[in-house]
Design a protein around this nucleic acid. Sequence first.
DNA 1: CGCATATTCCATAGATCTATGGATAACACA
DNA 2: TGTGTTATCCATAGATCTATGGAATATGCG
Lengths: 261, 261
Amino acid sequence: MEYATPDQQRAGLYEQLARIGKVVMHPKRIELLDLLCQGERSVDALAAATGLKVTTASAHLQVMRQSRLVETRREGTRVYYRAAGETVCRFATALADLGRARLAEVDQILRDIGTDAGGTERVTRNELLHRARSGEVVVLDVRPAEEYEAGHIPGAVSLPLEHLEAHLDELDPMIEVVAYCRGPLCLLAPQAVATLRDKGRRARCLEEGMPEWRQAGLPVASGPEATSGQAADPGRDRGAHHVAGSMWLSSGTTPEERTAL
Amino acid sequence: MEYATPDQQRAGLYEQLARIGKVVMHPKRIELLDLLCQGERSVDALAAATGLKVTTASAHLQVMRQSRLVETRREGTRVYYRAAGETVCRFATALADLGRARLAEVDQILRDIGTDAGGTERVTRNELLHRARSGEVVVLDVRPAEEYEAGHIPGAVSLPLEHLEAHLDELDPMIEVVAYCRGPLCLLAPQAVATLRDKGRRARCLEEGMPEWRQAGLPVASGPEATSGQAADPGRDRGAHHVAGSMWLSSGTTPEERTAL
DNA sequence: CGCATATTCCATAGATCTATGGATAACACA
DNA sequence: TGTGTTATCCATAGATCTATGGAATATGCG
């Protein structure tokens, strides 16, 4: 049981760390980890999102659980997986950062997409904080509704990419859109921006996604959209957009914001 | 060449990231990475330090190089490897942090050692900054001399663990020692502290190691020790210790410090 | 209780990774 | 140019990992 020599202790330490390494050695597991950093999900939802068979997805999740990077919660017949704490998401972010910094291929792929999506600069967090406060822009969360509900930028409007075209008319053409998604490696926001520009709207991507926002210590709201049930009623949505611009981190004027912190 | 569907692009991204994951899936590669974050080293030095055969070590280093995490420099007949930038070391630190946060085993091993080394609290960076400035403590770098030269805390004295017992008399028994090494997972400083306490000295470990210090943006000095050739001349060393306490981040009163920033 | 759903467990064939010895390449020095 | 040193390349046997279909579990619902 005990390690005899310091060398063995040291080897033991690195072996433990390698358990974490093994988790991120497989592309699909990284993808799963990224998804879990957006919020909890059931096994089959994860399998569907990543294109894995349920049995394979489950196997991957077991590996991740044995490394203590994810935790589970059972609800009736299904099991929800979630990232085991902020540290895990920070690690995932660090991995993505390192990838962008060191692997030209990553940047290349991102640029291939970037050009379609809009070669323009992304919006920085600070710019967003200033402009959204004054109502100049509307913040659009284009992730699936479940992820929006699990946590979103206070004041952001939920409009999943898949519903974007159908609900385009809900967006005031006069107000610029700032779209965000799961993070710098996520394609949802860039695709949304590409679509919006195609339709002649002014739109840009936020520089970062939800995990980075959260990790920066900024407030996160959760629960369904305040005014309407996510793109179910176009009529009411228009109102929400206005609010989105003005209630931005103001002083907790909506139920959403009060519970945010 | 081009990815046709968004799904393929996404898969491509995660495949790239997995290249980094593969690097840290093997214990020895993590160990190598940690060493390289202390400074550059030749292949056989790395092999010796990790207990690998040169040919195996080289193979591991190739993997790391292909993932762009390390870079090389040739000098005559030997090749020096180094971490490819601060981002890489930050990632290594994030991995270690995650390991300590999530893997009870890591903490367990550290505690097994910690009890021998001194169950007392480690010294925080802030405490060190205050107490060293006023000369209350001497800061001891117990890593191998090469690593000290590649970068150390300004004002720290180099006394590699292996030479500690032989040069114990150079340390003023009245002044408390704060030892540091490669990081929270490194055993050098704890071992040094254990030895020192065995001899009746007051000694504690610094909470962090060189990489964390550097990543915090604190000044780093490099080159050989200012006053003497590292434990070669005990007589002069005693003077150095005093300096170590007083010149601490004062206002660049030594050559060492002037070049530090 | 029996059936349906969501997961996990298991065995296995195929793919990938690791350690190692021997050969090769690059370089320094006579 | 010959010799010694340092590092990389190569082929391979052994170990590990992955995907998958089928069986086993756990839970919910009549």
